[in-house]
């Protein structure tokens, strides 16, 4: 097995590897990524502490900004693209995200309903037997 990455057109590239670029272009990619990430982070911190925005929209906005920033990281730092040489990497990511979504979403949903239908544990413990 060899270590050349870009010779085999048929293979997906390694996660984290980029298509062949010059060093300048690669550095530029990181600069753009850093700029976008800092911008999104600043927006998040600003929105969380401000009174200028309609309050109930803040949680939604924070989640959206977080997802956007994760996307920025994936594209500019981890070099995940939609290209055909990334199919396996993206499929694995999609499977992982599906599981994360199911575990977090399912847990929150189930646990919320448990709390609806059961008195809190400390009250159960104090019930007369």
């Amino acid at each position: 097995m060899s270590d050349q990455t870009h010779m085999h057109v048929e293979h997906d590239i390694a996660p984290g590897d980029e298509e062949q670029h010059s060093v300048r272009e690669r550095i530029l990619g990181y600069v753009v990524g850093l700029g976008l990430a800092l911008l999104l982070t600043a927006t998040s911190f600003f929105i969380a502490g401000t009174n200028l925005v309609w309050q109930p929209s803040i949680p939604v906005a924070l989640i959206v900004l977080a997802i956007a920033q994760m996307g920025v990281h994936l594209v500019f730092f981890l070099h995940i693209t939609t290209g055909p040489d990334n199919t396996n990497n993206v499929l694995a990511l999609a499977f992982g995200l599906l599981v994360v979504f199911l575990v977090v979403g399912g847990t929150v949903w189930i646990m919320a309903h448990l709390n609806q239908n059961m008195p809190p544990m400390d009250q159960i413990m104090q019930m007369p037997r």
Binding site: V99, V103, G106, W109, I110, L114
Partner: peptide, 21 residues
């Protein structure tokens, strides 16, 4: 492989999760 991640509550139906869940 996919659906197996969507059924785990059936191990504790009796724990009071309510009819819709």
């Amino acid at each position: 492989c996919i659906i197996s991640f969507m059924v785990w509550l059936h191990h504790f139906f009796t724990m009071g999760a309510g009819p819709d869940v």
